[in-house]
Simulated assay, not measured.
Amino acid sequence: MKVLITGATGFVGTALCDFLEASAYKAVPTVRTKSGISNEIVVGHLDASTDWRSALTGCDAVVHLAARVHAMNGPTENPLALYRATNTEATLNLARQASQAGVKRFIFISTIKVNGEGRDAAYRETDVPAPEDAYAISKWEAEQGLQRIARETGLEVVILRPPLVYGPGVKANFLRLMKTVQRGWPLPLGAIHNRRSVLYLGNFVDAIRLCVEHPAAAGQTFLLDDGQAVSTPELIRAVARAMGRPARLLAVPVGVLAFMGALLGQRAAVARLTGSLHVDSSAIRSRLGWTPPYTMRQGLDATVAALS
């Protein structure tokens, strides 16, 4: 099968291209600007007018990873409009052209944030969507638009909503957490009792590959995770174990953390650390027979081993 991949130079895209090529697929990596990776196709800026025709020629499926994740907006800019231009309008433009080019299946990488920002009960595909920020709203609008296109054209749309993805080369908050543990700095997170799901990169690309080829994936929305939820302290201890380092956790009450977060303008960051975001991924397991090929322990070991 020939599979077009957007966002091919990103954290997930790079791993997916390598994984598909190793699995006897023909990966077609697309990029916004020339990057030098093998067989890349430069498509330019992603919006409602991007021309995908040459990239889509002969493709059987599309995996759409490219997205706007952060908006560096000034006081006069509309963040939601920026997100919609890339995450909604550009996505639907690609899907329409894919259908016209004879592509059979379109895999859209959405986000668990479409379900919401977290709650005590596990999220499921059947939940009423509750996106809160501009990023999640733009992804939810893209999902709805893709479903309309599917009904109108017969394009087989598969929607995946992952939680936080980690693995070799991970950046942002997960990298900062690992660096903190590596340096032996104490963390005031020992009194947190929450449940959070994460997804190892190797499990993610395996699930994407299955959704590209499995007949029963067509028209489905799936939530993904490693198959277990852990508390923030448990995750830190697991990272420390993989590093062979002690986990230095201070049992600071959650209420104190919330108060300090409010004072420092970090209310949302503290809420993510202390709150729950638990995913029930049983649907993809039962419908497609998927089992994550790696445990969380194996994923953390690989992630830590790659840390420079």
Rank of each mutant, 00 (worst) to 15 (best):
A98Q: 07
G275R: 08
R272P: 09
L189A: 13
L307D: 05
D47V: 05
G255Q: 00
Q97M: 06
G36S: 10
A271T: 15
N173S: 13
V205H: 01
L210P: 13
S231A: 08
L160N: 01
S308F: 12
E156G: 11
A216R: 15
I109L: 15
P233L: 00
T76S: 15
K2L: 04
K26A: 15
A81V: 06
R272C: 11
L300I: 11
A136M: 08
L257V: 09
V239C: 11
D225L: 04
L210W: 13
I192L: 01
G145K: 08
F222M: 12
W290G: 06
L4N: 11
M72P: 09
Q228K: 14
D60P: 05
D120L: 10
N87T: 05
R196I: 12
K2Y: 01
E156H: 08
T291S: 13
K2T: 14
L80T: 05
T14H: 13
T91D: 02
T180N: 04
N173R: 03
T50Q: 00
V31A: 09
A121H: 10
H278T: 08
I41Q: 14
D225R: 02
P188E: 04
S281V: 03
G227L: 01
L155K: 03
D133Y: 07
P79G: 14
C17M: 04
V28M: 13
F222Q: 10
E143K: 07
A122R: 10
T111H: 10
L56S: 02
A238K: 07
K34M: 13
V165M: 01
G219P: 08
V270C: 12
L175D: 14
T232M: 07
L4A: 10
R245Y: 00
L82R: 06
Y25K: 09
T9V: 12
V128Y: 05
V212H: 12
D60S: 14
V63P: 13
F174Q: 06
A238G: 01
P246W: 05
V114S: 06
R161H: 05
V239G: 09
W290Y: 15
Y25H: 15
R297D: 15
R105T: 10
I109D: 04
I5N: 01
P186S: 08
K34I: 13
R196F: 11
L223S: 04
V63D: 12
L277A: 11
V114Q: 07
A302L: 06
S276Q: 02
A136P: 08
F174G: 06
C59N: 07
P131Q: 06
N87W: 02
W185L: 15
P129Y: 04
I41A: 12
L164T: 11
G167R: 02
V212G: 13
G202M: 03
A142P: 11
V304D: 01
L273R: 04
A55L: 00
Q266A: 15
V28H: 08
D120Q: 13
L46F: 13
V254A: 07
R151Q: 14
V31Y: 08
L235S: 04
N87K: 04
A216V: 12
Y123M: 11
Y200Q: 09
K34V: 15
V43C: 14
G44S: 11
A130K: 10
M296E: 07
L235T: 02
N73W: 12
T14Q: 12
A150R: 07
A262H: 11
N78S: 14
V69E: 02
P79A: 11
P253M: 03
G275Q: 12
